[in-house]
Amino acid sequence: MTNDRTRPDLDDTTVAALGKLSEALETVDQARGFLYAFHQLTGKADRLLQESVDLFDEAGAAQLAADLERDLVGRNVIAERWTFQIVEDFDENYWAAFRGYDARAREQLAGGDRHVLEARMKQRERTAGHPAHEAGPALTD
């Protein structure tokens, strides 16, 4: 990493490309968060379903309880997978590859520096010398 996060040695197109890749990865990170939420919500739904099965059985609706337990409790949410398997597959085969390419691009083109586009934007948009507009680490006034 350099001392100047704005990387004046890089052309604007390279910085834009790194910024778009970073933004894409951030979007994938958001999708991953939703995937984990889906995983947790589906697990919660299955536990609630199990409670309803017990209550239906207690209420005398034994056949309905048995059918729900047989057909829905513990069911795969997609072919051959529970949600933990979906999350693991996503992490290992997509998210990891995406992160790897982001790291490769940053290392290859910007010496590992992250958020060069944003560092340039901060320098452009802040008011130098104004309190609360300080340059901060690895940026200059």
Score class of each variant (00 low, 15 high):
M1I: 12
T2Q: 09
N3G: 14
T6P: 04
P8W: 06
D9W: 04
L10T: 01
D11Q: 04
T13A: 13
V15N: 01
A16W: 07
A16Y: 08
A17Q: 10
A17Y: 06
L18V: 02
L18E: 01
G19I: 01
K20A: 15
K20V: 12
L21R: 03
L21K: 00
S22G: 15
A24M: 05
T27K: 09
V28L: 11
D29Q: 08
D29E: 11
A31I: 04
R32E: 09
G33M: 02
G33D: 01
F34C: 07
Q40D: 15
G43M: 06
K44T: 14
A45L: 15
A45I: 08
R47G: 14
L49G: 05
L49M: 13
L49Y: 03
L49A: 07
Q50M: 10
Q50S: 14
S52N: 10
V53W: 00
F56A: 11
F56G: 00
E58R: 11
A59F: 08
A59M: 10
G60D: 05
A61R: 07
A62I: 09
A62C: 05
L68D: 00
R70I: 05
R70V: 06
D71T: 10
L72C: 12
L72S: 08
L72V: 06
V73Q: 00
V73S: 04
R75E: 14
R75T: 09
V77E: 05
I78D: 07
E80D: 15
W82P: 03
Q85G: 06
Q85Y: 03
I86T: 08
D89Y: 11
D91Y: 01
N93L: 04
W95D: 09
A96N: 08
A97L: 09
A97K: 10
G100F: 02
Y101C: 08
R104P: 00
R104W: 11
A105H: 03
A105V: 04
E107P: 02
Q108K: 11
A110V: 01
G111R: 02
G111I: 03
D113L: 12
R114L: 12
H115P: 01
H115V: 04
H115C: 07
V116E: 00
L117Y: 10
E118Y: 11
E118M: 12
E118K: 12
A119V: 03
A119Y: 00
R120L: 05
M121P: 02
M121Q: 15
K122A: 09
K122Y: 07
E125M: 14
R126S: 00
T127C: 05
A128C: 03
A128I: 10
G129F: 03
G129H: 04
H130G: 07
H130K: 15
H130T: 13
P131T: 08
H133T: 01
E134K: 08
P137T: 09
P137R: 13
A138I: 07
D141A: 08
D141Q: 05
